[in-house]
Design a protein around this nucleic acid. Sequence first.
DNA 1: ACACTAAGCTGAGTCGGACTCACTTTATGG
DNA 2: CCATAAAGTGAGTCCGACTCAGCTTAGTGT
Lengths: 192, 192
Amino acid sequence: MPSTRPLRADARRNRDALLAAAREAFLAGESDAHVDEIAKRAGVAVGTLYRHFETREALVEEVYRQEVDQLCALPAQLLEQHAPDEALRYFLLRLVDHAAVGKGMAVALESIMATDSPVFEDARAQMAGALDELLQAGAAAGTLRADIGGRTVLRALGGICGMRIAEGWKDEAVRITEILLDGLRYGAVRTS
Amino acid sequence: MPSTRPLRADARRNRDALLAAAREAFLAGESDAHVDEIAKRAGVAVGTLYRHFETREALVEEVYRQEVDQLCALPAQLLEQHAPDEALRYFLLRLVDHAAVGKGMAVALESIMATDSPVFEDARAQMAGALDELLQAGAAAGTLRADIGGRTVLRALGGICGMRIAEGWKDEAVRITEILLDGLRYGAVRTS
DNA sequence: ACACTAAGCTGAGTCGGACTCACTTTATGG
DNA sequence: CCATAAAGTGAGTCCGACTCAGCTTAGTGT
């Protein structure tokens, strides 16, 4: 039994408010929002923010972790409705889309990557697992090369999404993703 | 005639020392080296650092810009000795290698990307141009797809190199790069 | 040689962020 | 409804990037 007795009601409320305020700020592109600002948005004092999150970075991590949780639920659903390689395509494009919608989210992701925090390692492992699910299904179906793991694809994707630059960002990201997919298929049907 | 009369000898020396100190610090992984530290390494006071570089960021940019200049000289040489697609492969792998050697350099690159500074835009344009050179040669030879520009490939590469994570980083980056190359070739020989 | 001066250098100090902690408020179990 | 531990508060600390008033010196004209 981990020594985590349930949070007091007001504490839980404040914690949630802080996460919501932070997410809101990040999605609005305010990726470098000051802690005071986030606390104010959540209607609490800075001290409260620091009661719930060790550092600013920890708050950012938590926001991202929640995001990852949601995204990682997708592959299973997609596989029920599409062929593996198409499911992979949808998932990758969804990730790109996600990063595009919230410019700040990509920054947050980057911010986490710049850290060696184990929290991020967990997130990465989770994502890699989700991708593995798709890749293995594709390998079994013979439509995707079998020798590439989720971590590798994740890295490529993370890189693509980590770069948010004005105008036409998303179009390019989509193209790169398509190329990546072609590369994964190419390995399965290698003709030369 | 731009109003830039040549720097005084000592000024030039100090500026170079600062750039060298910064590069050294970044290559050593001290990507977040404090300005005071960099100034001390260069044997000058902070004020001198700020005489030569508007902000810390500007210094980082300049270090990276020099690096880019060197790298962009490569494609022309490579094309003299290799087929276009092989030249592209060497160049991309070289970029990966470069980012791997200096962990800090990848961070610096990232730090620049997080900025909308025109200096970086120049660097990107230069890099994109270098890649275009290779891609167009490959398109002419029929070994690489013709509908992808240097900027797109650059973005993918930048993403890949922007992620430095402990252990096995390089191996993965190399694999991703190979996949990217396969994707570029696939488009040229598309069989389906 | 020598002095003159503008270019350059210095580093203590300012400023703006993240983070702390002594004190006050409040949810909740008995 | 009280006791009390959990939670909240926000003025204050700390630390890093950046400034600027005064000093030093390279380069130039004589």
